[in-house]
Amino acid sequence: MEILIDNPLATMYGPYFLIFFGFVIFFAIIILALVKTQFDKTNNLPIPAIPPNIDPYEIAYLRGGTNEVARSVVFSLLQKGFIEIDNIATPAVVKKTFNQQDTRNLNPIEQLTLGWLGYSREPKEFFGKTGLVEQLNVYGNSYQGRLEQQQMLTSEEDRTALNPVKWTVYLLILGLGGYKTLAAIAHGNYNIIFLVILTVAGLLIARTVAKMPRITKLGKIYLERLQTAFDNLKYTSQANYIQSFRANNAPQTTFAGVDPLLLSVGVFGSGILAGTVFSGYNDAFKKAQQQSAAGGSSCGSGCGSCSAGGSSCSSGDGGGGSSCGGGCGGCGGGD
C-alpha cells in the first residue's frame, strides 16, 4: 500500500506537479475539443434550400429555441393589433386590446398565445415555469424534431455520444488532482490551495469545452444563408413603422403569405425593431429576460442575432432541454 503514497508522482515537488498537471489538463482539453469537432461533420452536407413558404417561427426556433418563438409570436400579435404593451405601468404589462378582431385568421400558435395571455400578463411571466414558453413547447418539440432530422440542431444522441470522452477527461482531471491532494495530506503538506484551484478550474474549462453547440455547423450555415437572402428585408420591412411616421399597427403588404417584418424578426431577432414604433416591445421584453435570468431561469440570454456570427448558444449538459435563446433584443452580445 505504501506505493500509493510513496511514488514519483505522489512525492513530486509541488510546483513541478502543478506544471505537470497543467500540461495534462491542457492536452486533455485539447483532445476533448478535437473529438467534439469530429462529431459535427454536418458542414459537409448539402445546405437545405430556402423554401418559398418559409415559417418565421421555425427560423426563430432554430436561432434561439422556444424563447425566440415566444418573442416572435408575441410580436406578431402586437403587430396585428391583438395585444398592446403598457410600458408606463411598472412593471410593464402585455394586455389584449379592447377591439379584438376575428381571431380565426390567426394561425394555431398565435391563437394559443392569445388564449394563454388572458386579459394581461407581465413580460416576465412569459419565460417562467408556467409561462408561455412552456405552453409553446409542443410547437418547440415539433420544430426540434424537424430541425434535428435536417441535422441543423444537435440531437440528444449526438450529445450522449460525446459522454465517454467527456467523462474520461473529467475523471482524469479529478482523479489526478484528488490523488495528489490526498498524497500531499498524507505527507503532511497542507499547502494545497493551488492544486485545488487548478483542479476546479480544469474541470470547469473541460465542462465548457464539452458542451455541444445547440446549432450544428449546417444549421449555422443555413442561418447565414437566410440572413444573406433576407438582409435587405430588415430595412425595407421597417419602413412603415419608423417612429417618425404615424403608428401603423396593421400589417404592411404581405407577400407569399409571410409578413416581412415578422420574417425579419424571425431571422434577425427583435433587435431590428429598435427605432420603430415597436421599440417598446423590445424594452419590455429585455427587462423581462433579465428578471427571468436573475430568477434562476434556465433560459440563456444569447442575442437574437448572434447565431450567424457563430452562436454561443449551447444547451446544458444533458439537461435543461431547449435552454438556449431568449435574445437580448438584438444587442450583439449577451444581455
Partner: peptide
Amino acid sequence: ERFRADIFLNQDLIDFLEITTDHYLDANPQ
C-alpha cells in the same frame, strides 16, 4: 439586390435569374 428577399419568397413564380456579370467580377466576400 433590392429584390433579393422578394425573389426568395416568390421562388415558385420566378423560373430563372439573370445576373449582371460585372457585379461579381472582383467581388467582395458578401
